[in-house]
Design a protein around this nucleic acid. Structure first.
Length: 228
DNA sequence: GCGACAG
DNA sequence: ATCTTGTCGC
């Protein structure tokens, strides 16, 4: 694990690390047989952006879809939220949860952007490269770029998210009458494959199941922490 | 310089 | 991200 890609001493050096991680990111499919899928998400106390971060990595068998117990970890983040640097804030807790998994997944869904980032290094790319695991970014709002063209109303509709002339993600209508999600390459997955996986796991909900499982597990970890 | 800004 | 209740629609 490259320490300067996880804990750079300054934001300036974090920016350098992001350019290196983006360079190491693979944007084509390099996936083995998918038998175990994971979702990664964090939770924190309201109005306490410097307080502890509770991370969860939730597992799900594929194609059985049976959920397995999630791994969780709690860490103090190095700094308050800064747009563009989410990876450095949340990765330490997520990596700790990952380490305690009984079995490593073949595919990882991350709550946040992949390459749809000013330096093409959103948290899904950050985590995917650090762990060298196929990763997909699923974000609920835009960090950079704009949606080109019209997004249809029907579930499965798609429109490209373009930043500085580059397609960095796809806006996907996963559920009727719901806002789209933004699906991007994290690592070792093509954009087309990422979209296919998200649609396969959304099941009529806005967010794919691995993401929902991780969200619930992270919230449960936070409440348990608060009650102790 | 100003505005925008994942979670 | 986060709190909380009610309310609306399929």
């Amino acid at each position: 694990m490259r320490e300067d890609w996880l804990n750079p001493p300054t934001l300036r050096e974090a920016t350098v690390a992001q350019r290196e991680i983006a360079e190491a990111c693979e944007t084509r499919d390099r996936i083995g047989p998918v038998r175990l899928i994971a979702g990664a998400d964090t939770s924190m106390k309201w109005r306490d952006s410097r307080g502890p971060i509770h991370a969860a990595v939730a597992l799900q068998r594929w194609p059985e879809r049976a959920p397995l117990p999630a791994a969780t970890a709690t860490r103090i983040p190095p700094f308050a939220y800064v747009p563009g640097y989410l990876g450095f804030r949340e990765a330490p807790a997520l990596l700790a949860a990952w380490e305690s998994l009984p079995e490593k997944p073949d595919l990882l869904f991350v709550d946040g952007h992949g390459r749809a980032h000013p330096r093409r290094c959103g948290i899904a790319t950050h985590l995917g490269v650090l762990l060298d695991v196929p990763a997909i970014g699923v974000a609920k709002s835009i960090l950079c770029g704009r949606v080109e063209g019209d997004l249809g109303e029907e579930p499965g509709s798609a429109a490209p998210l373009v930043d500085r002339g580059e397609v960095v993600a796809m806006a996907i209508r996963t559920r009727a009458r719901a806002l789209p999600v933004y699906v991007g390459i994290g690592h070792r997955v093509s954009l087309e494959t990422a979209v296919e996986w998200v649609l396969a796991l959304s099941e009529g909900r806005r967010l794919p199941l691995p993401t929902r499982l991780a969200h619930d597990a992270a919230n449960a970890a936070r409440r348990e922490y608060a009650s102790i």
